[in-house]
Design a protein around this nucleic acid. Sequence first.
DNA 1: CACCATGTTCCTTG
DNA 2: CCAAGGAACATGGT
Length: 283
Amino acid sequence: MPELPEVEVLVRHLNPLLKRKRITSVEVRREKIIRPTSVRELNAALIGAEFGEVTRRGKYLLFELLRSRGEQTRQLLGHLGMTGRMYLVPAGAPLPKHAAVVLGLGRENFVFEDTRYFGRFTLDVSSIAGLGPEPLGEAFDADALRSALSRSTQAIKVKLLDQTVVAGVGNIYASEALFRAGISPRKPARKLSKAEASALVKSIRAVLAHAVKSGSTIPLDFAGAEKKDGLFYYGSTAGQSELYEERMLVYDRAGKPCSKCRMPIRRIVQATRSTYFCPTCQK
DNA sequence: CACCATGTTCCTTG
DNA sequence: CCAAGGAACATGGT
């Protein structure tokens, strides 16, 4: 479940679990995931290093690697793609079918599992350089958003997925934020008024902050669960899945009544991806 | 078999 | 150089 809130909750979960743990082995089962880093480079950088802080930038996870005094510290960059998960399991526990990278930490293994293998686990941190502002940070305001959109004729929904405009909004929360702001997803980005940009900034912040708070509150089913593996995933149990979906006002709700006006929610396709909105509430 | 899926990157076209 | 559109990546669910 990887947009900014899911990554943020995962980072908060992993940080205390990984801190000060020493990496004793590295097993790369899918080389694509560490690209452009080689297995040799990854081994050299990781084996013998300890984890420092785990932080987040947009949808990326950043793992600080501490080495003994005098040696340079490096960073490891993680991205969950569409289906990535990261969790700790006891050493010797069976690995899932799509385990991409496994780090040995003594009595535990740190597993990066990714069914579709769209994720990343690499020493190449260059992709964070071009990211736009953090949506929950001070730099993200109506002026910043408007100037980022000023030359774009594309629909606002499509531009919200552009990580250089704002870092961390994905397909679910883009639809949710536009609904809360009362803005049509088809509105050309550069036509947003100052008032609309201001409302959109507020709704993006609210939607993301609320999701982080909910994710942090829900007892997530991480390592230790029996049948359902240990993972980061809101929908890992039926009850939690319902809680999660209830929070969505428009996403994946085509045909269901709008929470404000009861008209049916519509699904359209923009830039090959689904958008959900209320045609009467969103102009 | 068809279509859908939380994301990014690469290629082409204008 | 830039913006925009679309395919590619890979696997699984319905």
